[in-house]
Amino acid sequence: MDAENQSTIMRLAEEYGRENLMVFLGATDVEGVEISAETLIAGDPSFAGPLAGVQLGLQVYHILEPSLKRYIPPEVYQERLGIFEVIVDAQRIEDSLSKMRNQAA
C-alpha cells in the first residue's frame, strides 16, 4: 500500500476512532490483499510507509467475501461484482482475512 493511502487511513482512524473504522479492499491478488490487510492491522511489513510499526488494528474486509453478499442488494451485486464470482477465489480471501481479523481481536 502506498504511503499516501497509509497516511489517509491513519488520519481517518484518528478522526473517527480505530474501533469505528472498517476498511474494504478490492484488489484480487491474494498476496497483495494479505499485505494490505497486515498493513492496516499490524503495521506496514515493508517498514516504508507511515504505518511502519503502527498497529491500527482495523477491521479489514474484502468486498468479495462470500458472507458479505447477503448485505448487498442482489441486483447491485450482480451488476457490479458478478464478473468476479467466476474468476476470484473469494472464499480463500475470506478465510485469510477472517483469520487475521480473529488474531487481531
Binding site: A27, T28, D29, E31, G32, E34, I35, I83, I87
Partner: peptide, 13 residues
C-alpha cells in the same frame, strides 16, 4: 511486490 499479474487479471475478466 504483491501487485498481481495485470494482463492475466484482465484476461480472466
Amino acid at each position: 511486490q504483491g501487485s498481481g499479474n495485470v494482463p492475466l487479471n484482465n484476461y480472466k475478466l
